[in-house]
Amino acid sequence: MLAETSLDIRTVSKTYQVNDQALDVLRNIDFTVEPGEFVSIVGASGCGKSTLLRLIIGLDTEYHGDILLDGRRIDGPGADRSIVFQEHRLFPWLTVEQNVALGLDASDAPVAIRGQSVAEHIDLVRLAGFEKAYPHQLSGGMAQRAAIARALVNRPKILLLDEPLGALDSLTRAYLQDELLRIWRQQSVTVLMVTHDVEEAVYLSDKIVVMEPRPGRIAGIVPIDLDHQRERAAAGFIAHKERVLHLLNH
């Protein structure tokens, strides 16, 4: 589908001015997300991973270097990128259906098609039957799935996830990790996810970008060449995990 899109992060740096002192939040970030890849960014707090995501989604447009999507410099939010935050951020006064439909608000798809697309994506995240429910009536996991539907309904080229499962309990998290895999494969969308959970990163990703803080920079990139379904207890899994942890803690 849209699996031909590549995201190029080229020598991206960002500096904040705090009390007349320059604070380097990101320094020389360089990596590429290949078409259809599932890439995770892992790092301790303060390493700038969320800042990087905000630059990519376009909520922040001040940085040095280049962020290129399919070779074109991004400039603010666009239909080609979507994001799911750690909090579901669904609007409490709208139903699940209406929230998901908002994802199509800025598109020029005709109204008839929109309804169908909304229904499809609600189905995709397995929330069929909850279209008329309000967010406060959903569990944390269900709400997050609705947020994912809202992010995907416009068929973005790349889906960004900022610690999407961080607020959920471990049982729900494990379930949703598998759901993420399924959705990723079904939609053939490129995914870039930020997480602090190393095991989660190893479970899901094709490669892991490991970052370290002060200033935020890349410590290393670890490719994960395991087949899905991955076994968390398997030797190969543990070996990859060790490698990532090593990079994080050195």
């Binding site: 989604i57 376009g58 909520l59 939010p77 666009g78 239909a79 979507s82 994001i83 935050f85 909090e87 951020r89 609007f91 908002l102 994802g103 608000d105 800025a106 809202r150």
Partner: peptide
């Protein structure tokens, strides 16, 4: 949080 969602979804001023 809501304002950011609106920006990301590129909602018009009226919406």
């Amino acid at each position: 949080a809501f304002v950011e969602v609106a920006r990301v979804l590129r909602l018009s001023r009226r919406r």
